[in-house]
C-alpha cells in the first residue's frame, strides 16, 4: 500500500469516527435517544449510564476531541513526528475504547452499537497507524530516509513520493 493511499484510508476512517462521535455528543447534549437496533435498548442504557461520563466529561465528547486530534495529526505534513503523533493518539483512542467496552460488558451489561462501531474504527486506525509508523517512509520500504536517520526532516508535500 502506498504512503498516499494509506494516509487517505486513515483520513476516511477518522472522518467516519468523527461522524459517530459527533452524533453521540449531539444526542448527549440534546438529551435525545440514539437511533439504535434492537429497540434502542442497549444504546440508550449505555448513553444514560453513570459510565457515560468520565470525571464529569461525556465520553462522547472525549471521543470527539480524540478524533479531531487524530485528524489534525493526519493533516500535518508527513514526517516521522506526525506519524508518531498519529500512532500515539490512536493507541490512546484504542485504550479508551477498551475501557469503554469493558464497562459495557462487565458493568452496564449492555452493548451500544455506536460505541462498538467507534471501537472497531479506532482499532483499525491503530493497526494502520502502527504499520505506517513502523515502516516509516513507504517508498523506502524499511530503509530509513536521511530525515529519519538524523538529517533535517523533509518538507516534501503530503503524499509526494520520496526518493
Amino acid at each position: 500500500m502506498s504512503s498516499r493511499s494509506l494516509r487517505i484510508t486513515l483520513l476516511v476512517l477518522t472522518v467516519i469516527g468523527l461522524g459517530v462521535a459527533s452524533y453521540l455528543t449531539y444526542i448527549h447534549y440534546a438529551g435525545i435517544k440514539p437511533l439504535c437496533g434492537r429497540n434502542g435498548g442497549g444504546c440508550e442504557i449505555v448513553q444514560t449510564s453513570e459510565y457515560s461520563k468520565l470525571a464529569g466529561v461525556p465520553v462522547a465528547l472525549i471521543g470527539l476531541i480524540g478524533y479531531v486530534a487524530i485528524l489534525a495529526s493526519l493533516l500535518l505534513p508527513e514526517t516521522e513526528r506526525s506519524r508518531f503523533a498519529t500512532v500515539a493518539l490512536t493507541v490512546i483512542g484504542f485504550g479508551f475504547s477498551v475501557y469503554l467496552t469493558y464497562r459495557e460488558l462487565f458493568s452496564i451489561h449492555h452493548i451500544c452499537e455506536w460505541c462498538v462501531s467507534s471501537a472497531v474504527i479506532v482499532t483499525v486506525l491503530m493497526c494502520l497507524a502502527t504499520w505506517r509508523f513502523l515502516r516509516g517512509d513507504a517508498t523506502a520500504m524499511g530503509t530509513p530516509t536521511q530525515a529519519e536517520i538524523g538529517a533535517p526532516e523533509s518538507n516534501a508535500p503530503l503524499g509526494a513520493a520520496h526518493s
Binding site: 508518531f84 500515539a88 493507541v91 509508523f133 513502523l134 516509516g136 524499511g142 530509513p144 536517520i149
Partner: peptide, 17 residues
C-alpha cells in the same frame, strides 16, 4: 541505521502503550 530507527520506533511505541 534502519535497524536502529526501527528499534527507536518500537521503543517509542512501547512507551506510549
Amino acid at each position: 541505521a534502519a535497524t536502529a530507527v526501527r528499534r527507536t520506533r518500537l521503543t517509542q511505541l512501547g512507551i506510549v502503550v
